[in-house]
Design a protein around this nucleic acid. Structure first.
Lengths: 189, 189
DNA sequence: CAAAGGGCAGACAGACTTGTCTGTCTGAGA
DNA sequence: TCTCAGACAGACAAGTCTGTCTGCCCTTTG
């Protein structure tokens, strides 16, 4: 096995387990067992469990935020405005997946608290998500893109919680409010 | 000490600790130590820690949902429509309290998962919150009050997460969208 | 061919967890 | 005064957690 293979296997396994079940519910023993890795190997690559969680958050940003949500939404529509709204179409499909596991950044933020290093890291990644929305808003020529993105993000996060409760149509509801929000932020003549 | 005093002290202490730090982070030993209660006394009143959590959720519904949010919002305004919007004024004050601890129902739902008994109980209490909103929507004469309350709840939950991230103006943003939502659900002639 | 290094398996330490159980003390009522 | 319920204190069991350390094996490289 290549030297980097073990590390990658650890991160990949962590992605599966942490995303679905949270941080505290997954112990190091279960993790290394699932990854087929010795404990010494794990601690050779990561100084602590928390450091692995940081690596997981980074992976989550790449795989979920960027590839799964933003790229998909951009590919589904032509204009930036339509791309913004397409976020909630992507959410609709995502909510219905049987491996839907909510937003790890929100989960970890609430699980660890806003003062914990992992909570703070989650806040940073949530801000990155808002950055993508802000970018689209600027492309769409909306007013006050930063402000807009904060309101938009409220809709995203709220609909995710509702979906966790079982409301699979939460994406439709959020999208309807999102349309109104776009109208509200259109440039005034 | 009266026989009920010990139980009440346990529940009161649990409220303080669970609301602020979540379930998993508070052990039974710390809890009984804080409450000044013997372990045997604790297990005389509660069959397990989970059963105490259920009692906490019930208390949270009474103290927080009903007394702190709904009653306050109703008292702040005259018409049902204004009372609805006042929810976010209450949120604005709540977000700024130094003991702001987010929504325990959301926290526990995400912490334990939607399939866990405590997660399911949290879902039920969240539904109760929607019920209050629905009641107000009906008093305001809005169309489709149940649907309306689901969208409204998205704004409430999303703004709470944003406040946890540090955006203290999330209540204002949510309120602005809430106004648009009310317009959208006004009875059509 | 030999040495070195990385990975695997798992024992181990020490600190936690929930929950049980034993014993002591206090206060109320007969 | 005697009794008894209930509270307190704390040892204890059984299992969890993270993190360290010791061997053994395999592969790669000098």
């Amino acid at each position: 096995m290549s030297p980097a293979a073990a590390r990658q296997r650890i991160v990949d396994t962590a992605y599966q387990l942490f995303a679905r079940r949270g941080i505290r519910d997954v112990g190091v023993n279960e993790l290394i067992s699932s990854a087929g890795v010795a404990k010494a190997t794990f601690y050779r690559h990561f100084a602590s469990k928390d450091e692995l969680v940081l690596a997981f958050l980074e992976q989550r940003d790449r795989v979920w935020t960027v590839d799964l949500i933003v790229a998909d939404a951009r590919g589904r529509a032509g204009t930036p405005t339509e791309q913004l709204l397409a976020i909630f179409d992507v959410f609709g499909d995502w909510f219905r997946r049987d491996d839907f596991e909510a937003c790890s950044f929100i989960n970890i933020l609430l699980e660890m608290g806003a003062n914990h290093p992992l909570g703070r890291a989650s806040i940073d990644y949530l801000a990155k998500i808002r950055g993508h929305v802000q970018q689209l808003a600027e492309e769409a020529g909306l007013r006050d893109a930063e402000d807009f993105s904060r309101s938009w993000h409220i809709l995203m996060k709220g609909s995710i919680i509702s979906a966790t409760e079982g409301d699979l149509d939460a994406s439709k509801r959020a999208q309807r409010m999102a349309r109104m929000l776009i109208e509200d932020y259109r440039p005034r003549p």
